[in-house]
Design a protein around this nucleic acid. Structure first.
Lengths: 167, 167
DNA sequence: ATCCGATAGTAGGATGTCCTACTATCTGGC
DNA sequence: GCCAGATAGTAGGACATCCTACTATCGGAT
């Protein structure tokens, strides 16, 4: 069953690829599967690069978001909006970043419901090191030219726009 | 802080998009972010379509894989290879499918280490209904033409190939 | 024949995500 | 002022994934 029929090339093996062969509509499900798979590959690669720095991609994104914010701090609610994350996921992420001393929760000056999350000096240094690690990875293992990378981003942007991403 | 500077258009808000603006290299990180985000969108859409059928995308893929297999059964190890999943994830998925009566574990005729997973009649029917639900979703909410969909798949295939996917 | 490394699957733990409450706080209409 | 509904964040639970061990079994080298 494992190697019953030796295919000539590209034995794409995922279920939805199989599905594609048998049913159609042409390519739609194949695109879905490809996106899923590439995301998995990228997630794994980036997380591997970030692990030595004690960060996941989600936490890294949060750190970057705070780093580039005006005052180095944002309400948790805003972080959730920017990162497209559920409020409880933000709580979790900030918990861990705070435990590592990379951010700290501070009180909002006027709204006592709101918790501001502020990046610490340690957090700024960690972000710099992690960014280096991420860029090093991405240079290593792409398979696309600059033009192709841009094309990919544009195509995905179309999908995102059609789905109401970008608000 | 929330709406400090009203941007003219496309206020792409994710952290890595911000990162992109400030550092570069042009577009690489943007592509990574786009893949991540589109995967999230697709995952959510597909899971929503499958929820009424009691399936996640992962379990649906497993069901499809078994459905299109020669004898309607595969060793768990092979399922893991085809679906690019950790052996423990396969165990989890098969546990749940089996609890729902969609598959059953049977003994391998010669290798007593191996557990074969076989799709049941109920599983076959469930797959058919779920496939209908998934195709209905995908037709509704894409933003690409057929040509663009194909182009997207091809670009992602390049990435997968460069990363040693397809074995 | 036997032993030792390789292989198949699972158990338990960690992480990350979401959902459903729940508490605390704010805000606007009365 | 004051109360009803909205909003910010968190707690606890469900689920999916991975990792590290662990057991059972296989198969080839000796």
């Amino acid at each position: 069953m494992t190697a019953a029929q030796p295919l000539p090339f590209d034995p794409i093996a995922r279920a939805a690829d199989l599905w594609e062969e048998h049913i159609g509509p042409a390519s739609v499900m194949g695109a879905v599967t490809s996106v899923m798979r590439v995301q998995q590959i990228l997630q794994s690669a980036v997380d591997t690069a970030l692990r030595p720095h004690g960060l996941t991609f989600a936490r890294y994104e949060a750190l970057v978001l705070l780093f580039f914010s005006r005052r180095g701090s944002l309400p948790m609610r805003v972080m959730g909006q920017r990162l497209q994350l559920h409020p409880t996921s933000v709580t979790n992420i900030v918990d861990r970043l705070e435990a590592d001393g990379l951010v700290k929760r501070i009180a909002h000056p006027t709204d006592r419901r709101t918790t501001l999350v502020e990046i610490t000096e340690t957090g700024r240094h960690r972000r710099a090191a992690a960014t280096q690690a991420v860029t090093d990875v991405d240079f290593g293992l792409r398979g696309l030219t600059d033009r192709q990378t841009t094309a990919l981003t544009d195509l995905l942007a179309k999908v995102r726009r059609a789905c109401g991403d970008f608000e």
